[in-house]
């Protein structure tokens, strides 16, 4: 057992403050993704409503925005915001702030599209029935349309949230030291003493990501069950 712990590099975890540093790296990941997710949900809902408008101008703008997000790799967006902004307009963003901008830009577009889809999937007769029952526009939205929309939205948006969390290791490219970078630092610092440390450390990273994403999925399936009854 002792040999296994050493061979697979779990021992380096307990050297010095290594484990705390890994948790610190994970906190950076979590902080950036949670702020971005929160902003994306708020802005995405607004955008989704805008996307359902029949106005050709808003339609075109939303379309272009959505396509840009879909076509551009997140890494390119990160480079544009972090390095490009400094080069072109002399703005110096902190790397974490640049990361939040990019993830929110991405999350808002995808969330907006999900909201649009969910809103449009509510059949017209739901609105008509509501109006004929004497509900006004906002009553219809708040008691008929939005509750149904949220139910349809939930599984898809949870998928988006976990995807955003899982994409955060990219921010290492704009000089943010997050969990995977801390892991690589530890592996390299111990490359002679424990050459197999990579296995142990990335296993721990796997466990950390699982610990973050699993409760989110659990919550989603719990809500889905609760609402389906």
């Amino acid at each position: 057992m002792q040999a296994l712990v050493t061979d697979l590099g779990f021992d380096v975890l307990f050297k010095g403050t290594n484990f705390t540093r890994l948790l610190g790296g994970m906190w950076v990941t979590l902080k950036i993704s949670l702020i971005s997710v929160a902003l994306s949900i708020v802005l995405g809902i607004l955008l989704g409503v805008v996307m359902t408008f029949k106005n050709p101008v808003t339609k075109a703008i939303c379309r272009v925005y959505l396509e840009i997000v879909r076509i551009m790799p997140q890494l390119v967006l990160l480079f544009i915001v972090y390095y490009g902004s400094a080069r072109l307009i002399g703005l110096k963003f902190e790397p974490e702030f640049a990361a939040v901008i990019v993830f929110t830009f991405w999350g808002t577009a995808e969330m907006g599209d999900l909201v649009r889809g969910a809103l449009q999937s509510i059949p017209k007769h739901q609105y008509e029935s509501a109006y004929s029952l004497g509900l006004n526009r906002s009553q219809t939205y708040f008691s008929i349309v939005i509750p149904q929309t949220i139910r349809r939205l939930l599984p898809l948006s949870i998928n988006l949230v976990t995807r955003m969390i899982k994409t955060t290791p990219l921010i290492v490219m704009i000089e943010v030291v997050e969990a995977t970078k801390v892991a690589r630092q530890i592996i390299d610092a111990n490359r002679v003493a424990s050459p197999n440390a990579a296995f142990g450390l990335f296993f721990v990273i796997f466990v950390l990501y699982f610990a973050v994403c699993w409760p989110i999925s659990l919550l989603a399936s719990h809500l889905e069950k609760k609402w389906s009854n």
Binding site: V12, G16, N18, R21, R184, Q185, I186, D188, A189
Partner: peptide
């Protein structure tokens, strides 16, 4: 992460 030129110790 380039021991021994620049790295972070434990």
């Amino acid at each position: 992460d380039k021991n021994p030129f620049g790295y972070v110790d434990e």
